[in-house]
Simulated assay, not measured.
Amino acid sequence: MKANSNVVIKGQKVVLVPYKPEHVEIYHTWMTDPFLQEMTASEPLTLEEEYDMQKSWFEDEKKCTFILLSPVFEGNRVGSTGIWGGMVGDVNLFFNDHDDPQSAELELMVAEPSARRQGLGIEAAMLMMRYAITSLHVTTFTAKISLNNTPSLVLFKDKLGFHEVTVSEVFQEVTLARPCDESLNRLLEGGTDGWTLSALE
C-alpha cells in the first residue's frame, strides 16, 4: 500500500517501517521455517518470488505491510532502517471484505524466536490498529488464527478483546473480530502511550 510507503510508527519496544526490498532476504529466510509456514498458512517461495511479492504488496492498495524492528534485538539490522533495531517480524492489514471496505484483517508475526514473549507482538498490534483507525479509517478488525497457535489466540482474544466469529475445522483456524469502539480506543491509547508517526528517513 502506497499510503504507508513512507510512514514510520515508533512505540516503546518496536518500530514499524514499510516493507522494502532491503528487507526481503531476511523475510525470505524466515519463511523457510516450517513452523512459521504452518502458523501463517503460507507456501514457501523462491527468493525471486519473494521480491515479486514485496513489489506487488507495495503497489496493492488493499494490503498494508510493516516490518517490525526492535532495539532489543541485535541481529538482522538492515540498511537505513537498521538505526532503529533488528528485524523481528511483520504486521499486515488486508482490506479484503468486499461488503465492508472499512473492515481490515490484521495479521501479526514475530518471526525471531529470541524476540518472542517480550511484549513486542502486542505493542506492534496496538500500534498498527491505532494507525489503521486514525489514518486508514478502519472501523472493524478481523483475524484468522490457527487453532494450534495458542500465543496468538491469547493475544487477540484475552489482551485485545477480539471475539470468536467462526471456526473452520477444515482449515484448522478460527476467525475473530473486534469493532472499533470507545473501549478499544481507550485500550489502544493506554498501550501506545507516546507513539509517534513520522516520515521514513
Rank of each mutant, 00 (worst) to 15 (best):
Leu106Trp: 06
Leu106Val: 10
Glu107Pro: 04
Leu108Ile: 15
Met109Thr: 14
Met109Val: 14
Val110Leu: 11
Ala111Lys: 03
Ala111Gly: 11
Pro113Val: 11
Arg116Gly: 11
Arg117Tyr: 13
Gln118His: 15
Gln118Arg: 15
Gly119Phe: 12
Gly119Tyr: 10
Leu120Trp: 01
Gly121Gln: 06
Gly121Glu: 08
Ile122Asn: 05
Glu123Gln: 13
Glu123Gly: 09
Ala125Tyr: 05
Met126Lys: 12
Met126Gly: 00
Met126Cys: 14
Leu127Trp: 02
Leu127Lys: 03
Met128Gln: 05
Tyr131Asn: 04
Ile133Tyr: 06
Thr134Cys: 12
Ser135Ile: 02
Leu136Asn: 00
Leu136Ala: 00
Leu136Val: 01
Leu136Gly: 00
His137Thr: 12
His137Ile: 03
His137Tyr: 14
Thr139Lys: 10
Thr140Lys: 14
Ala143Pro: 03
Ala143Glu: 00
Ile145Asp: 06
Ser146Thr: 06
Ser146Asn: 06
Leu147Ile: 09
Asn148Leu: 13
Pro151Val: 13
Pro151Ser: 08
Ser152Gln: 08
Ser152Tyr: 07
Val154Leu: 07
Leu155Lys: 12
Phe156Tyr: 14
Phe156Glu: 09
Phe156Pro: 08
Phe156Lys: 05
Lys157Trp: 02
Lys157Met: 15
Asp158Leu: 07
Leu160Cys: 10
Gly161Trp: 01
Gly161Thr: 05
Gly161Gln: 06
His163Gln: 09
His163Leu: 03
Glu164Ser: 14
Glu164Gly: 10
Glu164Gln: 15
Val165Leu: 12
Ser168Val: 15
Glu169Pro: 02
Glu169His: 12
Glu169Gly: 14
Glu169Ala: 13
Glu169Met: 10
Val170Lys: 09
Gln172Ala: 15
Glu173Gln: 15
Leu176Ala: 11
Leu176Pro: 05
Leu176Cys: 08
Ala177Met: 13
Pro179Asn: 11
Cys180Gln: 06
Glu182Tyr: 01
Ser183His: 09
Ser183Thr: 15
Leu184Asp: 00
Leu184Val: 09
Asn185Leu: 15
Arg186Phe: 04
Leu187Val: 03
Leu188Arg: 04
Glu189Trp: 02
Glu189Arg: 02
Gly190Met: 07
Gly190Glu: 14
Gly190Asp: 10
Gly194Leu: 10
Trp195Pro: 01
Trp195Ile: 08
Trp195Ala: 11
Ser198Cys: 15
